[in-house]
């Protein structure tokens, strides 16, 4: 963090004369600045064990690559799945694992909420003037998670080059936007499922069925799971907007199950809605924690 001295010191709050706009912006950015500070410290802490960090990054990368291998094997045997060829299948896989990978990198640590509550470190977070959500999410931030994101993005690139798509700037922008929505949806799911631990101790693993389970589900064209599951991951837990709808959008393909085509454009709205939901659930959980002390 060589730029420490250049940056505006957050303590030097804009004076009265600066107008409310700058103050509002500073306030809005504050959680992100705090997150960056905390994450950077964790990165430096992780760097104290370079061998472990290297091995873990390698492990994560190898894990993704073996999964890619599995996708290739599966499509190799089946030819096509739900009308998707191997590269189109890789596109779906890469969209899912990059979205989950990025969300995991920034928010995955919230799954350790129960641990913080048990050990009392959550109380220590509550007496700091920083959102406890930011602190929990930044906890043990580690660059090893790039070991998942980078290969996923590389596979995404390879898949995009090899699928039959007519590219336009609009489509690129839409792809970027849907990917961002995917990351937000995954992060929100992570937060929501972690909040269960405010209410039920030892429920961490149940959350995994939603987070990692969601990732496993979205790695393949979800039409193969049948209509009921597709409907529930569209309208109940909107996992369909992580990889499936963006893939339909990029490939410009009609929905194999005949679901409405406008759905593929609603990703950003769904993401915003789900994030609002996550914020609400977090607040409720936090209030419950502070009013029960459990």
């Amino acid at each position: 963090m060589a730029d420490t001295h250049r940056r505006i010191v957050p303590g030097d709050e804009p004076g009265e004369g600066d107008g409310g706009a700058r103050l509002a912006v500073t306030k809005l950015l504050r959680p992100f600045l705090d997150y960056r500070r905390l994450a950077w410290l964790w990165v430096r802490a992780a760097a104290q064990y370079p061998l472990s960090l290297a091995l873990m990054s390698l492990a994560v990368t190898t894990g993704v690559l073996t999964q890619v291998g599995a996708v290739v094997i599966v499509f190799g045997h089946a030819g096509t799945l739900a009308g998707f060829t191997v590269y189109e299948g890789l596109l779906v896989f890469a969209l899912a694992s990059s979205a989950f990978g990025i969300a995991d990198m920034f928010a995955g640590s919230v799954e350790r909420l129960g641990h913080h509550v048990r050990t009392g470190s959550f109380d220590a977070m509550l007496i700091r003037p920083v959102s406890p959500l930011v602190q929990v999410a930044a906890d043990e931030f580690s660059p090893r998670r790039l070991g998942k994101v980078v290969p996923a993005l590389v596979v995404l690139g390879i898949a995009l080059v090899n699928v039959d798509v007519e590219w336009s700037y609009l489509k690129m922008a839409l792809l970027a936007l849907t990917m961002l929505s995917g990351v937000l949806i995954c992060s929100a799911i992570w937060v929501i499922s972690a909040c269960v631990q405010f209410f039920v101790a030892g429920a961490r693993e149940a959350a995994n069925s939603l987070t990692y389970g969601g990732q496993a589900l979205t790695e393949y064209p979800i039409a193969i799971y049948g209509e009921e599951i597709v409907r529930s991951v569209t309208y109940v837990v909107p996992l369909a907007f992580v990889s499936w709808q963006p893939a339909l959008l990029v490939l410009d393909r009609p929905d194999p199950l005949g679901m409405p085509e406008y759905l593929r454009h609603t990703g950003p709205a769904v993401a915003v809605l789900l994030c609002a939901c996550a914020a609400l659930v977090w607040r409720t959980g936090l209030r419950h924690y502070r009013s029960t002390g459990s």
Binding site: A78, G79, L81, A203, E205, A206, S209, Y220, I224
Partner: peptide, 29 residues
């Protein structure tokens, strides 16, 4: 106890997802 129930749920979900993918493959071949 809660962790055990949660574990059964998680393992079942993963099993089901994995099984459905394989069923799709074997439906083709």
């Amino acid at each position: 106890r809660a962790a055990t129930v949660a574990g059964v749920l998680t393992n079942s979900v993963f099993g089901a997802i994995n099984a459905m993918v394989l069923l799709a493959v074997f439906a083709a071949r």
